[in-house]
Amino acid sequence: MFGHLKAGEKAKIINISHVGHLVKRRLLDLGITEGTEVCVKCVMPFGGPIMIESCGQCVGIRRKEADCIEVERL
């Protein structure tokens, strides 16, 4: 689960199909999909969004969506 990663940890996305349709589309637009390697940059407090990086591009997404993304720690 993405949500369990701490800042600085790297992971590879293995399943993104449980995320809502719109969010999935936007992530795909940004080049984030199954097989993408991402690094968690920071985690906002009180269940706030997390900031992830992939290919030098930083993206912010909500924690509850991140929790629906299955990842494999690298």
């Binding site: 719109l22 969010v23 940004l30 591009q57 930083c58 912010g60 997404i61």
Partner: peptide
């Protein structure tokens, strides 16, 4: 219910 938040953080 629907809400969407995905934001690109530019350098």
């Amino acid at each position: 219910e629907t809400s969407l938040f995905v934001i690109e953080l530019p350098p």
